[in-house]
């Protein structure tokens, strides 16, 4: 008896779990869709901006380069970690933190800017200096979020407190595959010919041939800083979007697996429950039959 009600209770529990995970899966799916859309939508802008910045840096004196592009000789680096606020997204956070620890081991002096609660805890345990800490949020990152982060990065880098800034985020390859990625943010190295391909270089050369005289209003030296700081904001925004899409993708898959597991358990328990029930009925019939026989013999 007790056994049957126990199984019944377990079925109920598994059903509740499956409902929750299924709901989470569906939420993640719709969030992922939006994240992907906005990542795709901002692509032309980013490409054009990179292109413009390259165009302008190609034309100014190497001596006049912006502070953003200068190497500084200090043995301190700044790492910006982008992690989710919430868990339940498979191995994403574990992988990210593994990468974080590896980075921490390979450099002696690292300062941190953490975005997302999950990374914050780990970095706090490391006992390193945390320059700034932000919440990642559970909705699509908006552009305004970027300003305070970039301002902190600017202060550190232009104030010559750090020699370089790296970003650790999760790269979104597909719904099934997200990998932590370490990317160098400052000093700015524009995607060069190896990464951006031959096309970009060809177009740049063509532009130079076709319009050797380009007016810059105001002068390139004045234009470049605002272009570059904008470039920085946009790059940071891309990293946030990418991390967000990864988080939702990972959560969607892990919740899908959890739902399927719950269904499997429910199936198994139901079978067990029915077996037990049948056994009980058979026993009762045997009992009644036995009783009737005993009466008949008397």
């Amino acid at each position: 008896m007790a056994n049957i009600s126990l199984i019944k209770r377990r079925i109920q529990t598994a059903q509740n779990v499956s409902k929750t995970t299924r709901a989470m899966q569906m939420i993640a799916t719709s969030k992922l869709k939006r994240a992907q859309d906005s990542a795709v939508a901002s692509k032309p802008y980013v490409e054009k901006l990179t292109f413009l910045t390259r165009n302008i840096t190609d034309r100014i004196d190497p001596e006049n380069i912006s502070d953003y592009m200068k190497q500084v000789d200090i043995n301190v680096r700044l790492l910006v970690v982008v992690s989710p606020d919430k868990g339940l997204c498979g191995g994403l956070i574990t992988n990210l933190l593994k990468e974080l620890l590896r980075y921490d081991n390979s450099f002696n002096n690292v300062k941190y800017i953490v975005i997302g609660k999950k990374a914050e805890k780990t970095v706090a345990k490391l006992g390193k200096e945390i320059v700034g800490s932000f919440d990642f949020g559970t909705t699509l990152p908006i552009f305004e979020n970027v300003y305070p982060i970039v301002k902190l990065i600017n202060d550190q880098f232009l104030g010559k407190n750090v020699s370089g800034v790296d970003v650790l985020y999760t790269n979104f390859f597909s719904v099934f595959s997200q990998k932590p990625n370490l990317s160098s943010l400052l000093p700015i190295k524009l995607p060069d010919d190896q990464t951006s391909g031959k096309d970009v270089k060809d177009t740049l050369d063509k532009i130079k041939r076709n319009s050797p005289y380009t007016l810059f209003e105001p002068s390139p030296d004045e234009l470049l800083p605002s272009l570059l700081s904008h470039y920085l904001e946009m790059a940071m925004f891309q990293y946030l979007l990418e991390s967000y899409a990864s988080e939702q993708g990972a959560r969607m898959i892990s919740m899908k697996n959890a739902t399927e597991n719950a269904y499997e358990i429910i199936d198994y328990l139901k079978l067990e429950y029915n077996k037990k029930r049948q056994e009980k009925i058979t026993n009762e019939i045997l009992d009644i039959g036995g009783g009737a026989m005993a009466l008949a013999y008397e």
């Binding site: 165009n55 380009t214 209003e217």
Partner: peptide, 19 residues
């Protein structure tokens, strides 16, 4: 509208980059 005032751009304008 640009940093140096309002400008008009007609075909065959010289190469220009401005804010």
């Amino acid at each position: 509208p640009t940093l140096n005032g309002q400008i008009g751009i007609l075909p065959n304008h010289i190469g220009l980059l401005t804010k």
